[in-house]
Write a protein that binds this DNA or RNA. Structure first.
Lengths: 332, 332
DNA sequence: TTGTATGCGTTATCAA
DNA sequence: TTGATAACGCATACAA
């Protein structure tokens, strides 16, 4: 844009203060004056400079979001819910992917300087920097991370879901399990899932790590795993994408799912419903995580709430056909 | 952040001008002075205010992106390429989804005030507003839209790919076709695809519109279509998601693909490879579209290039198994 | 009801 | 080599 409040003021024959008041309704303005101002605004096609407003107001009216990668539906879904609510609250969303970036710290600091608050996934941001951000008073909300002081955290329930899933599978009569996508480093969500199923299944489950949580990695690891003479009866995957890979591997090996081997996922991404066979999984409310994060951030920023809050959203076991035969299979 | 350049200056015993110069290397600073400044910066943990910098520099160092929706892999992939290159060029990315939004114009104007340039998908933005943005000198790049004056446009080739696809299908011996996801309003890409296959296939193809370009809509429309007594031998879909829906519909109706009916998609999203049967489709370089858009915008913003450019990226026919039996079927 | 003047945090010009 | 100081575009306390 180009035209400033001064030109509007001059054209309307008033001061810039009056223009500002007329536009924001932040003080008394005579009806006739307001009209003149509005007319000038219209004629000049004036839009207040975001920079000027932000500088004067001392806020950006923008939220940031930091994720490792946007490939795959999980982060996208969360982002969707986040952006929707943020926009509703009058805030823009500035994104930052850390995948393959060097100098992540600088990028995040820059981002922090552009927004009023940050949504951060898991352990995307190095711990020392998190501490620094907290110290600087940056409003923070984390998704899928253990609680920490000075920031909100938002998670999905994992342990109980893991038990429910394990029990459903033992109900099918399975006795030998594998957990595909086992955590190498501690990735909070996956870690909880793994510990949950292991607690329920005891020694009957074997951990099989993947390099990443992607279809391809799931495919590779499952192919290796299923090639063994003594393959597991059921593969519990860390997430739906890994599970999708496992499904493909089974098919390539000529194995029937769930006849020869059962497979389950986690998250309930859209493709889970469309997979053949349809994937049994644990539904995680991804969009709601994003939406809640936006609201939580808003509370923190506006000061509606001062003390951090740590929320755990509940999940739901979604039984489809990849985990075994059911009397009445749920339709996709 | 909180500490300003004034505090640094005071601590270092110099003026703010010197601090600025020392930090940006934009003028002569004695070595000893620089050291004192840097030390003060370090001790106070000073980071220049983005707002101050932007106001003084007259630029945001940020790009915007406007898309209808982020659900589905297409926009996500483009966004990924866009953000990556933008970040490489030192620019943040501010996103805006128009899906389900009222007052889209205001949102877009606000966004335009936050960034140095905008990437816009197809006809997401109302034409009058586009004209206004052009008039205001906002740098614009469009993806998937016919060329217009005053902005860059970036597209994938559609017509020739359509012909190649049509010829491949007639090579299978099919004679009755349907185009699923036919354009209701003019949606540029889909429109070109439809016109392309119609030109190649003539009267042998029937247009079947869907409400949206989603799996669900594809499913519904395909179920209806395949329920008829005289169903087509091959369904050419507007895009992969619609095609995925068609695959599901066929399965639900007990129809074999490609035995009873052939199905093809467009885009080559990740799920296309993993579909059963694997989807024959036209690959579109989605990430590269995003990456190129970011570079084009940068050229426009820095002034490296003044005149708009209209680019068409080439596509590739990807033959898998959903379109018919091949002597040596390509592995997924 | 309106106007003046100041602050917001930089960069950059021009003197010194 | 350094320092005052004027932009940059707005909001707002305070005065009139």
């Amino acid at each position: 844009m180009d035209v400033t409040i001064y030109e509007v003021a001059k054209r309307a024959g008033v001061s810039i203060a009056t223009v500002s008041r007329a536009l924001r309704g932040t003080g008394p303005v005579a009806a006739r004056t307001r009209e003149r101002v509005l007319k000038a605004v219209e004629e000049l096609n004036f839009t207040p400079s975001r920079l000027g407003v932000s500088l004067a107001e001392g806020r950006h009216a923008a939220n940031g979001i930091v994720f490792p990668d946007l490939a795959g539906p999980y982060y996208t879904e969360v982002l969707l819910g986040y952006e929707e609510v943020a926009s509703e609250l009058g805030r823009s969303v500035v994104i930052l992917s850390t995948k393959g970036r060097t100098k992540v710290n600088d990028l995040i600091k820059d981002l922090a300087g552009r927004v009023d608050g940050l949504l951060i996934f898991g352990h995307t941001v190095p711990e020392p920097l998190v501490a620094e951000l907290v110290r600087l008073g940056v409003r923070l909300v984390f998704i899928s991370r253990e609680p920490l002081p000075g920031a909100d955290t938002l998670r999905s329930e994992n342990t109980a879901s893991a038990r429910a899933l394990a029990e459903h599978l033992t109900g099918h009569g399975y006795e030998r399990f594998a957990f595909l996508g086992a955590p190498l480093a501690s990735q909070d969500d996956v870690d909880e899932r793994w510990r949950g199923v292991r607690a329920a299944l005891g020694g009957a489950i074997e951990a099989v790590p993947t390099r990443h949580y992607t279809v391809d990695c799931g495919f590779d690891a499952a192919k290796e795993l299923l090639g063994h003479r003594t393959r597991p009866e059921a593969i519990i995957c860390s997430d739906d994408e890994v599970a999708l890979g496992a499904l493909l591997a089974a098919e390539e090996l000529g194995l029937d799912v769930p006849g020869d081997v059962a497979v389950t996922g986690w998250d309930d991404i859209m493709a889970a419903r469309h997979a053949r066979p349809a994937l049994t999984t644990v539904r995680q409310p991804m969009r709601e995580l994003g939406a809640r994060a936006a609201r939580a951030l808003d509370e923190l920023i506006t000061g509606a709430r001062a003390t951090p809050r740590h929320l755990i959203l509940s999940t739901e076991l979604v039984v489809r056909s990849s985990c075994g035969y059911h009397p009445r299979a749920e339709s996709p």
